[in-house]
Design a protein around this nucleic acid. Structure first.
Lengths: 219, 219
DNA sequence: GTCTATAGTCGGATAGAC
DNA sequence: GTCTATCCGACTATAGAC
């Protein structure tokens, strides 16, 4: 096992620190120390604290993209414009299922913390993450929802529904501690993730049933 | 309109700053300045930064409790053990609807941000907020879900479903900026909150339909 | 590319006048 | 209770040796 390059080590440690303490709370000294390199190497490699922060956001977008991208791509293949409702439903399950695995199952804790922080006080980093990660997935989800609903719902409504459905997955990452306590689990491992996936899929199916039947509250 | 007491002004400003920058990122100097009082009054009234933080958490638990408590209490009255499914469904809509108003509504923005931050990096304040706010609500939600399902689902399954449903609300707070952009809104104000409430209620109704009918995926 | 030394800034705490 | 003045530690940035 070769030692990781300095800039790569710095990024990993930076994601951990920034996600935990924020850009102000984190200290370049502490980051450099944990990465086992002098503080000035941050200046050398990234130009300073700000540059390190943005580079960390970039890496997060990249890694999360690797986790979520295949699911979105598969959904694209499974359902082109004009595909059947059944195909659209299958594609929706595919996307949300993969999102659950990526967000709840994989070790994405630090990255998720980082993103949540950006939402509270968005910086330039947020735009990069949003454009690369969130927008394509929500775009895809709302597109598919409209197909299932037979175009009976507006684009706006589909988008709100997509965000809400995504929230069912997100909550198990963002409020992981709350979820763990509420369910009485010791840890949220592979078995627990499967249980979550089943229930999220069931909820999605229930909503799709309703959309397909056309029965819905006024909006 | 009488001028607010110094300690009360400090708490309001502190919630705003802590929620935005975290306990490390926030500056007592800036807080004191915004509250129009010398920094040393923080020491006088709260003993220091740490004391101010915990007092802010306390005030948040109190205020959010005032907002959510009545809904949970009303749900308790509306549906005692052995009540009808219809009553349980009504109570569920009541609780989730109030939670949406409380979490998504603009006037609770700072408090909600504060709580979300505590989830990512729990301090002593988290336990207080969890026990007082989250636990009772999730407890109530899962209890009601089991009544709607006619006891056909396990306690654990009900709890997971409760968390997932709560996630649909939470996402509009936690990922507020993502939701705003995805929906193409300029701000998430009163009208937008209403649209969210309608859709969350509709999703809940769809899930309850399915639970009541007994059709569901294997768990 | 890597590291040391240092300059300059800003933070929280506190003493003490009023 | 309120405010000023000050201390000291921690921070980022940078110059310059190797």
């Amino acid at each position: 096992m070769t030692t990781q390059a300095t800039d790569s080590r710095l990024l990993d440690v930076a994601i951990e620190h920034f996600s935990r303490f924020g850009i102000d709370g984190a200290s370049t000294r502490a980051i450099a120390k944990d990465a086992d390199t002098p503080m000035s190497s941050i200046t050398y490699h990234f130009g300073g604290k700000e540059g390190l922060y943005l580079a960390a956001a970039e890496r997060i977008a990249e890694r999360m993209g690797e986790l979520l991208g295949p699911a979105v791509a598969a959904a694209m293949r499974a359902c082109q414009p004009g595909c059947t409702r059944a195909q659209a439903r299958e594609a929706l399950q595919l996307v949300l299922g993969h999102a659950t695995s990526a967000l709840v199952g994989a070790d994405t804790a630090a990255m998720a913390r980082f993103i949540v922080r950006e939402q509270a006080e968005p910086t330039e980093a947020f735009t990069r993450i949003y454009d690369r990660l969130m927008a394509p997935m929500l775009e895809r989800l709302s597109f598919l929802l409209r197909i299932v609903a037979g175009e009976r719902i507006s684009d706006l409504e589909a988008r709100i529904r997509a965000v809400a459905l995504f929230g069912q997955v997100l909550v198990f990452r963002v409020a992981r501690e709350t979820a763990r306590r509420a369910a009485g689990w010791k840890v949220i491992g592979a078995a627990e993730t499967e249980a979550i996936k089943t229930i999220v899929a069931d909820h999605l199916d229930a909503v799709l049933d309703r959309l397909a039947r056309g029965k819905r509250a006024t909006t």
